[in-house]
Write a protein that binds this DNA or RNA. Structure first.
Length: 463
DNA sequence: ATGTAC
């Protein structure tokens, strides 16, 4: 219960006075609250003696780096000119989303950018925005829900199965999917991801292990869903044995839950501390990939992405088991993530915040809405879009506007017209909230080929 | 998006 550790304590030990001390204190007070001050100070002494050993340490990494070589925090200014960019479906995109991209293109680390036809304004980088940077990663360029993704399982069962077994399938969704802030599976399942070294090596991530374990195979809230529907395979899908035709499928949309949200929050905090930017672009603060924090974010982000996949795999495993069928074909992709990719002959960090990777031949799934089909797509590797496509139809009405514009009975009516059963869900996710997906697909014909569609029939969302 | 706002 001693006095709270402060900067003076660290300076007295012999640490140089600079911003690294504040960053270390931030880490200690956030994530190591329960530990004794004496124990932390003892560890701090070891850092002073052998900083090399702590170079990639969650609490001390930044201070250790400062001891080995001075770390300079400098105020970053925007460039006068923009990095090159392309906008797909310009007439469908609001002015705010465009100006957000334009600001991002003026970052000194920006090399190239693009807007997808479903783009709309976001926090930092717009949703539907793609940004390439030089050796820097922008936590808000990935977004809060790291590894938010789609996963489609196709079963070798005729689409007519949906009509005959509606109640059975509704029951499967009720029993085997978990939504909202509180629901978790009663029967926990282990997964190899929980033995990943990131859970040992990164203090923040270590503290999130229990939550991640509890939330495996859950979907969360907002626009996340799990739905049964009709898969129409229109063109031969590479590496698939399923002939063209109509099948039963399950499509899921969700991300990395509390694990990713906390990782995003933490590294955004570090980025804004170390990379002060003009106020209007504060959220675009980046981490240099050569620094301790940059490398650590990269590892944590990849873990969150793999965890998001593990959650989808778990959801589909549970559903397939309840259905008593093997999955015949899987199509999946992240749409909130960053990758190291070649851009115009140079390796860059490509951030896709609400954008589907669409390298040549790459398969992906772009959802429509509850009452409009999603599309199974194959990327064309268009370099102007940074090999990307939209991640959906894109919103036209905000959640708040939906609540004032639409009623429950509006929603019931449109669901009934389209023969869609909805479990949970609210007017803020009404089909009318979204752009016409067919228009959006037309605007990205240069980006992807369509191999098939997925039409939702039984949808479950958070209440 | 997230046990919803350092």
């Amino acid at each position: 219960m001693g006095k709270k550790l402060n900067g003076r304590d660290l300076i007295n030990l012999g640490f140089p006075k600079n911003n690294s001390i504040n960053i270390a204190l931030g880490q200690i007070h956030r994530y190591r609250k329960k530990e004794k001050k004496e124990a932390i100070l003892a560890e701090a002494k070891e850092v002073l003696l052998s900083p090399d050993k702590f170079k990639s340490h969650g609490t001390w990494g930044k201070l250790a780096e400062g001891l080995i070589a001075p770390v300079v925090v400098r105020k970053q200014e925007l460039e006068q000119t923009r990095a090159p960019f392309s906008i797909f479906g310009e007439n469908e995109i609001d002015a705010v989303a465009k100006s957000q991209l334009f600001n991002a293109l003026k970052l000194p680390v920006a090399t190239k950018g693009a807007l997808m036809p479903d783009a709309h304004s976001g926090y930092g980088l717009p949703i539907g925005g793609v940004l390439a940077t030089d050796n820097a990663v922008i936590p808000y360029g990935v977004g809060v829900d790291i590894g938010c993704r789609m996963s489609l399982s196709v079963f070798n069962l005729p689409a007519s199965y949906l009509k005959g077994k509606t109640d059975f399938l509704k029951g499967i969704l009720s029993d085997h999917t978990k939504f909202g802030m509180k629901e978790v599976h009663a029967k926990k399942m282990d997964h190899e991801i929980f033995s990943r070294v990131e859970f040992k090596d990164i203090p923040l991530v270590k503290g999130l292990l229990d939550k991640a374990y509890a939330q495996l195979g859950t979907s969360g809230g907002g626009n996340h869903f799990v739905e049964f529907g009709v898969v129409d395979i229109l063109e031969e899908v590479p590496a698939s044995k399923l002939p063209k035709g109509s099948y039963l499928g399950v499509l899921s949309h969700s991300g990395s839950r509390g694990l990713g949200a906390n990782i995003a929050k933490h590294y955004t905090y570090l980025a804004t501390k170390q990379c002060p930017l003009p106020k209007n672009v504060q959220h675009l603060a980046w981490l240099d990939l050569d620094t301790h924090d940059g490398q650590e974010y990269w590892m944590a982000m990849n873990l969150a992405g793999d965890y998001a996949k593990a959650c989808h795999d778990n959801i589909h495993y549970r559903i397939a088991k309840a259905l008593g069928k093997h999955v015949a074909l899987t199509i999946e992709n992240h749409h909130n993530f960053a990758w190291k990719e070649m851009v115009d002959g140079k390796e860059c960090v490509v951030h896709r915040k609400g954008a589907t990777p669409a390298a040549e031949g790459q398969l992906g799934i772009i959802p429509g809405s509850m009452t409009a089909p999603g599309y199974i797509v194959r990327g064309k590797g268009n370099v102007d879009s940074l090999q990307s496509a939209s991640h959906g139809a894109g919103r036209v009405f905000s959640r708040a506007k939906c609540k004032s514009n639409f009623t429950k009975s509006d929603m019931k009516k449109i669901l009934k017209t389209n023969d869609v059963h909805l479990l949970g869900g609210g007017v803020d996710e009404a089909p009318m909230a979204y752009k016409n997906i067919e228009t959006v697909m037309k605007l990205q014909e240069e980006l992807v080929d369509v191999l098939g569609t997925f039409t939702p029939k039984i949808v479950r969302m958070s209440k």
